[in-house]
Computed example of a mutant assay.
Amino acid sequence: MLASGDQHAYKAIFEHYWDPVYSTALLLTKSPDLAEDIAQDIFTMVWEKRSGMGGVEKFEGFLFVAARNMIYTRLRKLASGDAYRQHILHFFREQDETWANGRAEFKELESTILEAIQQLPPQQQKAFKLSRFEGMRHEDIAVTMGVSRITIKSYIVQAIATLRKTLDNHPSGVLITYWIFFFLETWD
């Protein structure tokens, strides 16, 4: 059912496997924030690749291998994160003489991002905005919206997947990558 895009099947899988995936990530990373981020990324990946999930025979095993691989990748990125940030800063410093064009491009990017957020279903949009713009924790959003914490996590995972897909096609590749890396990936 997930492979055919059934959101109820996705929600059932999400609710059933969230805690074990999160616990595994927490055990390996020793960081609640990083573990939650990784668990969200796993479920975002499941939703994005749902059409290929019909061939997965041992779904639980698939999730834990994916989580393990993502954890190792994330830890490697964290180790080289400062180098990446320095590279991005250096790139933008080199672009100073064309910054006027860059500012216009950035304003266009901001407008594209806000339009993409406005296209999200109302509940996903509200949960995403409360999380990313208001800095609210999932538990607080759940209370505010009157739904479970797991439902909020599901809304945010689906919102991130939709935004990534929408923004992947934007001509401002470097700025989009920068925005996704620092905005979508690092906030809980």
Score class of each variant (00 low, 15 high):
H90Y: 02
D33C: 11
L26I: 13
D188E: 10
A159F: 08
V174R: 05
Q123S: 09
W99L: 05
I113V: 14
L27C: 03
A79V: 06
I113L: 10
L2Y: 09
Y10F: 14
G173V: 11
I13Q: 09
I176P: 10
D82L: 04
E108F: 13
T73S: 15
G61D: 14
L114P: 00
I152R: 01
A35Y: 00
L89K: 02
G61F: 01
V56P: 06
A9H: 03
M53H: 04
E57F: 11
H138D: 15
F128T: 05
S51T: 04
D41G: 10
D140M: 11
R50H: 04
F133I: 01
G5M: 07
I117S: 09
G5S: 01
K107L: 14
S4N: 04
E115V: 06
T144W: 02
F106I: 15
K165Y: 13
K107T: 15
F43T: 00
L63S: 01
F43R: 08
V147F: 14
F183I: 07
A159E: 07
R85M: 03
E60R: 10
Y72Q: 13
F64E: 02
K107F: 12
Q95N: 08
R85E: 03
M53D: 04
F59V: 12
G173H: 11
G55N: 05
T112G: 03
A3L: 05
D96R: 03
H90P: 05
I117R: 01
E134C: 00
L109H: 00
E185A: 04
G81N: 06
S111N: 05
R164K: 13
P121D: 12
Q158N: 03
G52C: 09
I117M: 04
D37H: 14
K77Y: 12
A67Y: 12
A66R: 01
I180M: 14
D168M: 09
G54H: 04
F91R: 01
I71T: 02
E94T: 13
M45L: 04
D6G: 08
D19M: 13
A9P: 07
I42C: 02
F43Q: 01
F106V: 13
A116L: 11
D82V: 07
M53R: 03
A9S: 11
I180Y: 14
S23M: 06
G146D: 09
D82Q: 00
L109C: 03
R137M: 14
Y72F: 11
Y22S: 11
I113S: 12
L78M: 07
E139A: 14
N169K: 15
S23W: 00
W179L: 15
Y22A: 01
I156E: 09
D41A: 02
L63K: 02
E97W: 15
A3T: 01
D168P: 03
E105F: 13
D41L: 14
E36W: 04
T186I: 08
N101D: 15
